[in-house]
Every structure is written in C-alpha cells, then in structure tokens.
Amino acid sequence: MSNLNKLDFTALEVSGRNYLKWVQDVKLHLTAKNLRPAIEEATDKPVGEAEKATAMIFIRRHIHDALQTEYLAEEDPRALWVALADRFDHQKDIFLPEARHDWQHLRFQDFKSVNEYNSEVCRIRSLLKFCNETLTEEDLLEKTYSTFSASNIVLQQQYRAQKFTKFSDLISVLLLAEKQNQLLMKNHQARPTGATDYDDGTRAMTGGSRNAFVELPACVIMVGIWVKDMTDGRKLDVMSLVSEDQHED
C-alpha cells in the first residue's frame, strides 16, 4: 500500500489473515487516543460526533484499500467495527487447528537458538489465547523439558531439578548458558590448542629453547615462580633449574 509508511501498524488485509492482531492494535491505539468508546456498545455517556469521525478516520486508514472501498458508505465507527467482526471473526475457528498443530509438534531441539524457540512459543501461545485457549506455565516448562535433544538427557534432568515455576526464568537460564557456550567456542577457535601469545617471551626466558616448559599445559604462564626443593627445604629460582637442565643437555 502506498501509505504504509504513515501507518501506526499493519493494515487489515483483504483476506483477514491478520485480523486478530489488527483488532488488538486498533483497541490499544484508540484507548491511547481516548477514542475506545467510539467502537463499543452505547453507554450512558454518549460519544461526540468529532470523536466518532476521528475514530472512523483512524480505522479506515488501517484497512486495505479494497475494504475501504467496500465499506465506503459506512459512517459510524461502531457499525464498521461490527461489520468487520462479522466478516473476519471466524478466523479464530481457522487459526485454532493450526495453533494446536504447531504446539503439538513444537520441539526445543529443532531450533538453532533459544531466542528462536522462545519467539515461536510466544507466537503459538498468543494465537491460542486469541482462540480462548490458555497454555499454563507448567505446560510451557514441560514442553521444553520433554523436547530436549536425546544427547542432552542429563542436562535436561539438571534443569528439571531446578524446579522452575516460570517459563521466563527457564528461558533466562538457557539464554545465559547459550551465551557462555558461544564465548567458550570463540575462545577455543581463536587459535589452535597449545598456541599462545607468550611464545616469544617464553623463548627469551629460556634462552631460545622451547623445550624447557614442554611438559607444562599451554594455559600455564610461569612468571616469577619459585619452587621448593622438598629434599632439603631450599628454595630455588625456576630459571636456575632451567639453566641447570640446559647445562646437563
């Protein structure tokens, strides 16, 4: 649509596919503008003509051009609201089987990231709620636990043992674990195992020889280390030990 950049949210499509979300958007915006009574049943406090006109302009601007033409003769926002509801409210009956199917086949192990899984859960949960079906926190937690990958059975048991009561708390822990794993992999891939930025310094300390510390783990950095000779209690400088080893060679 040509005026898409001027809209507050996506306009109602001709097919009504986005009707449920559109209804919520319209209600929220009209409430913020103090125009919500214009689309509700008559109350003791009548709605002024100016408010009705403003609400009508807002609604018409957020429906497809074809719908604008079809309901061109409609001048009352309440009447237009009811007409659109009669036409598209059956979308609940259409979306409900789809939402149930998506929920039944949802598996945590099928998603590449925790965020993708969480987004899909929120989408399905919202759709079911629109269709007057509610997923409890226990439902969401059990769905997540029971669809871990088979290779993560122990990990799943550990999360279950934490006895989370809120799905959002479990997701927060999973997101933190995912981020830590990503940082671990980045550190691992930064350079091959055994490689270190301290090679030049080590060679300088050992007189150019790299064999002096060959038995030490790559992550160990020896700076000013003193070792104790357990035979006679003497303290020896580690550099002296290295020097002696080289003379023996």
Rank of each mutant, 00 (worst) to 15 (best):
Q24H: 11
R78V: 12
H29Q: 06
M56P: 11
L140R: 11
K143N: 02
D86R: 13
I171D: 01
L175V: 15
S168Q: 11
E248M: 07
S149F: 05
M205G: 07
A150D: 11
Q182S: 08
L155Y: 02
T193G: 04
D169C: 05
S113A: 13
V114L: 03
L184E: 11
L96F: 05
N211F: 12
H105E: 13
V242R: 03
H188Y: 13
S209T: 07
L12V: 05
M230H: 15
A99P: 00
V238D: 06
T134P: 00
G48T: 08
E49V: 13
L236N: 13
L30S: 03
G208K: 02
D65T: 10
P37Q: 05
W226G: 04
L155I: 13
R87W: 03
D65C: 02
K143Y: 02
L7H: 06
D110K: 13
Q24F: 10
Q182R: 14
F164T: 12
T196I: 04
K186R: 09
L170R: 04
L106D: 04
A99S: 07
H64E: 09
R87Y: 05
D25K: 06
S243R: 15
A79S: 12
E138M: 08
Y71L: 06
G233K: 07
T10N: 00
I63G: 00
E41P: 08
L135A: 02
H105A: 08
Q246I: 15
D169M: 07
K27L: 02
E215I: 12
H101I: 03
L174C: 00
G194C: 06
E138G: 12
N118I: 08
T31H: 10
R203P: 12
C219L: 02
T147E: 08
Q91N: 09
K92F: 07
Q246P: 00
T193I: 09
D102T: 04
D245E: 15
K33C: 04
E138H: 14
F88D: 09
V14Y: 02
A50T: 10
P217M: 00
W81A: 06
S243Q: 14
P97H: 04
R203Y: 09
T165C: 08
R160Q: 15
V214K: 15
D93P: 00
S209Y: 08
E98W: 05
Y145F: 15
E41F: 07
K45M: 10
K6H: 12
L183Q: 10
T206Y: 09
T196G: 07
S149D: 12
